[in-house]
């Protein structure tokens, strides 16, 4: 009889994948500035955790871990509902999803952190074909000499 857990994808394999998913979500949460993306990254972290739970449930041979993933789903749903509601409210006041616009809770007397570097023209603008304006052609400089 083959021992299931002795086969290569053991508990640790799953744990490592869960950890990497979690860490990637964290990196995204820290680096991205779109609030919706931040919450998607948070959901990614939750996915990593859920994978851990299931792996442990398999490892321990009971179903509590799987049950817990269901609660995780419930909590994630709640979180999404609340987060989206909040994002909507925030969007209505600033008309932007940029989280860096919200620095009101900084220490008194501290300057807000502003973006110094200018953005390059977006590739969309760059690459869109520029048609000549319909109508008469542009005024040409008059020729100075008629040879």
């Amino acid at each position: 009889m083959i021992q299931i857990m002795d086969l290569p994808p053991g508990l640790t394999h799953y744990l490592v994948v869960g950890a990497l998913l979690f860490v990637l979500g964290l990196v995204g949460f820290l680096a991205r500035r779109n609030m919706i993306l931040m919450f998607l990254n948070a959901e990614l972290m939750i996915q990593g955790v859920a994978l851990n739970f299931v792996a442990f449930a398999r490892h321990r041979g009971n179903l509590e871990g799987q049950g817990f993933v269901l609660f995780l789903l419930a909590v994630a749903a709640c979180e999404a509902a609340i987060a989206l509601a909040l994002i909507l409210v925030l969007y209505r006041t600033q008309h932007s999803l940029d989280v860096s616009l919200w620095q009101n809770l900084r220490e008194e007397g501290l300057e807000p952190i502003l973006d110094e570097e200018p953005l390059p023209l977006s590739p969309l603008e760059e690459k869109s074909p520029s048609l000549t304006v319909a109508g008469p052609g542009p005024a040409q400089p008059e020729e100075t000499s008629h040879v």
């Binding site: 820290l30 919200w102 501290l110």
Partner: peptide, 17 residues
């Protein structure tokens, strides 16, 4: 250490991590 409280959520998350 007060300037650490710069109001940016992501810095707080960074500190937590």
């Amino acid at each position: 250490f007060r300037p650490v409280q710069n109001g940016l959520v992501q810095f707080y998350a960074l500190a937590m991590a």
